[in-house]
């Protein structure tokens, strides 16, 4: 059976994020293996212009809507449903992202296809498709077999190569009409991040603290270490959610993307949502008491010790080397 795959392409402020190319790349691979087709669905203001860059798809389905900086989900789901019917789609790929959150599940109910979340791998054989879902922040993997190779998959960021989805050719463009849906939700405005004291996305060194830092009283210790290293303190989400640091310091899916020379992670488990924001770091060093913490899978150096025990010592060693002690 040849695959007919729809990829939901995201865009915000005129930019298409890497995840969309990652999905296009894996869709291309599956389609080529089965002699199928890839459709890239893109909707909202500026879609027509952006669609020309989606060369990994055979066809771009374009729902241009100059009034929608961010497309209404209800309209988008209906457009996807119509596209599934029309193109006899067997697979639909949506990003496991905040923007696309909740689309896959609702589309599943409307289309009768199953939805699988947190997809990390897709393997196709003659007879079936095995989809791997990463649960518990990547600590446990589950394989699900799709016998008819049909499904809606929520794809994790950063697991498929984006370059495979960047092909320098133009897809053929098919404009689609905006479904007539009366939504009870209106998008009002885009809110820029509040200018923080420090822009962590520009720092060369980040000392990043997670739940393992245990108490707000320990944040100053991390600050001192960061000072010694000439950097700043960033954090994972729970630290911000508990009010220990401002939102401007959060790294990850909902926070900032950072790409420092050194990312020193203290007591961070390395959930996919966190990894997403720090995957650009050149050198990752992880300190974690759990030898099985997922962060060790992508850190360059690691130590299985208590971060509270090492902070002070590390600061001293650094000061010694810098001759500032």
């Amino acid at each position: 059976m040849s695959a007919s795959i729809i990829v939901l392409v995201e865009h915000l402020k005129g930019n298409i994020p890497e995840i969309s190319y990652e999905m296009l790349g894996v869709a291309r691979k599956i389609a080529d293996a089965s002699g199928g087709k890839v459709y890239a669905l893109i909707a909202g203001k500026g879609s027509s212009a952006l669609a020309t860059g989606l060369g990994a798809a055979d066809v771009a389905l374009v729902l241009e809507d100059s009034s929608a900086d961010v497309m209404n989900d209800d309209v988008l789901i209906e457009a996807l449903k119509q596209a599934i019917n029309e193109k006899q789609a067997t697979l639909v790929l949506v990003g496991c992202t905040n923007i696309s959150f909740g689309i896959g599940t609702r589309l599943a109910l409307r289309s009768g296809m199953p939805f699988i979340n947190w997809v990390k791998d897709i393997k196709t054989t003659e007879g079936e498709m095995v989809v791997t879902s990463a649960l518990f922040g990547g600590k446990v993997l589950s394989d699900i077999v799709l016998k008819d190779k049909k499904g809606i998959l929520g794809i994790l960021s950063g697991v498929f190569p984006p370059d495979a989805g960047k092909i320098a050719k133009q897809p053929s463009i098919e404009h689609i009409a905006k479904p007539e849906i009366k939504s009870k939700i209106t998008f009002r405005s885009l809110m820029e991040p509040k200018a923080g004291d420090i822009d962590i996305s520009r720092m060369d060194v980040l000392v990043s603290v997670g739940r393992g830092i245990q108490s707000p009283d320990n944040i100053p210790l991390a600050e001192e270490l960061a000072n010694a290293l000439g950097g700043a303190v960033s954090s994972s989400r729970p630290v911000v959610d508990q009010g220990w640091l401002p939102l401007t310091r959060q790294v990850g899916k909902s926070g900032m993307n950072v790409s420092p020379e050194l990312y020193l992670a203290l007591g961070i488990s390395g959930a996919p949502e966190h990894y997403e924001g720090m995957k650009g770091a050149k050198l990752v060093v992880a300190i974690n008491t759990d030898p099985k913490a997922p962060i060790f899978d992508f850190a360059h150096y690691g130590a299985v010790v208590d971060c509270l025990e090492i902070i002070e010592l590390l600061k001293e060693e650094i000061q010694k080397r810098k001759g500032t002690q």
């Binding site: 095995v130 990463a134 990547g138 600590k139 446990v140 993997l141 589950s142 394989d143 699900i144 077999v145 060093v285 992880a286 030898p291 099985k292 997922p294 962060i295 060790f296 899978d297 992508f298 850190a299 360059h300 150096y301 690691g302 130590a303 299985v304 010790v305 208590d306 025990e309 090492i310 010592l313 590390l314 001293e316 060693e317 650094i318 010694k320 080397r321």
Partner: peptide, 27 residues
């Protein structure tokens, strides 16, 4: 169909020793 632990790709080079030695190695 199957639930399992991810194979630890083990990219991280784990530094051994006591905390002070590790701190020195990191520096």
């Amino acid at each position: 169909e199957r639930m399992y632990k991810p194979e630890v790709a083990g990219r991280a080079q784990i530094l051994e020793g006591d905390v002070k030695e590790i701190a020195a190695k990191l520096a």
